[in-house]
Design a protein around this nucleic acid. Structure first.
Lengths: 224, 224
DNA sequence: GCGGACGTTGACGCGTTCTTGACGGGCGGG
DNA sequence: CCCGCCCGTCAAGAACGCGTCAACGTCCGC
């Protein structure tokens, strides 16, 4: 499993990052300051680091400098500052990419995936194929009979969770929890609506699903 | 690293648990009440939860119920109460094991290890096999001669209870209590109907059951 | 501001599942 | 031999979950 370290001084942002990354199947650890970030890197090298530049102790750039001494781990820098100085400095010091706060989660995730891919790290392309349908979770690309299929962010999120556990049962509560958050544990309505949309886009015969299977009363599973 | 969440309202106990678990190489987080426990589970799914039943806000059983909506994480329940009510209720709600305070640390650790092992760390399917029939309780998948067999939620519930005590007798009252709740202790009708359905789906010769055996007047057992 | 894409909700029909009552047969005791 | 108990079987109505549709709100790009 790909291991991601997220570093930010704002616990709310760490929490958001954590939830979204975990929902995509990453193993996540967080750090609130530069010192603990370096310690974690020292103990257990991540596959990618998400690094905020504004930290209470060491400056983000300082952290970057120090870790670049001994590792090439890809680093995606995160910052509230709009001045290009930091950006330039960070990229000079070996950052791989740069996202400005407030950031779009999907964009950040895309850049994280890209950074991991470039590093050639955990490079097993994350693909599920069934019949003429191909789902590339990492690239967020779905094709059917060679043609691109457009999925909305929420649709992707569901497909991702199911694809990550391909063939295995995912309970309704789990899906809701991962995609919509803990407050939606019982809104099975959403699942019905979205599974229908996904099937309409991906299944041969949407009324007779062969990939996105319902386990009545329990949950769903993606069968290949 | 295995991540353990310990939930108790007594800081001294949390401290003891923390020290002992960390000494064994676990990654430990603690919570003093139900709300923060659920929040931690939400943010970072533990590999095992140690849960005290007496909490200041939510009852331990309430916490258990809520987290069972969306996750199968193993839970070892901890309680100062000696009444078996809580114990039964907690186990009914999906707790994996139970330790009574004051507890022996080695015993607790052994139970935690066992819970982790049973959960398979990642995926050891909880399966019962007999002849050409295979029951995977975790994944809720039943196959017979390789072909999928569809069981309804209630049917699964019964199969699950019997499978968990594979080979041993389960009294009618226990089955009714676990599947339909305490108010149905005498509705043995239900059992007859459902056992017949289960046998029809899983037994070679439903009128001559070899797996789902009746002990007349007492209960049922699952024989492999 | 206008239109489209997307997410959220509520309603409805349909098939499945659950519940409930009734019936018959095997077995043991009176 | 008859009776009662308990189990397996069946059937029918009720309740429930799911798929589907349509309407609405919001956000964003044009």
């Amino acid at each position: 499993m790909t291991f991601v370290l997220a570093v930010d001084d704002d616990p709310a942002i760490l929490r958001t990052l954590s939830i979204n990354l975990r929902a995509r199947g990453y193993d996540v650890e967080t750090a609130g300051d530069g010192r603990s970030a370096l310690q974690i890197i020292d103990e257990r090298m991540p596959d990618v680091v998400i690094l905020d530049l504004g930290l209470p102790d060491l400056d983000g750039v300082a952290v970057l400098k120090r870790l670049r001494v001994y590792t090439q781990v890809p680093v995606v820098v995160l910052s509230a500052r709009h001045e290009s100085d930091d950006k330039v400095e960070a990229l000079d010091e070996g950052a791989d990419d740069y996202v400005t706060k407030p950031f779009d989660m999907e964009e950040l995730l895309a850049r994280v995936r890209a950074a991991i891919r470039r590093s050639g790290g955990d490079d097993a392309p994350w693909v599920v194929e069934s019949g003429d349908v191909r789902l590339d979770v990492r690239e967020r690309q779905a094709t059917r009979a060679g043609a691109d299929v457009r999925l909305t962010p929420t649709e992707w999120h569901i497909v991702e969770v199911l694809a990550r556990r391909e063939g295995r049962l995912v309970r309704q509560g789990e899906l809701l929890h991962e995609v919509w958050g803990p407050a939606y544990d019982r809104e099975t309505n959403y699942l019905r609506v979205y599974l229908a949309q996904i099937r309409r886009k991906l299944e041969q015969d949407p009324s007779r699903p062969t990939m996105f299977i319902t386990d009545p009363g329990i949950g769903y599973r993606l069968v290949v």
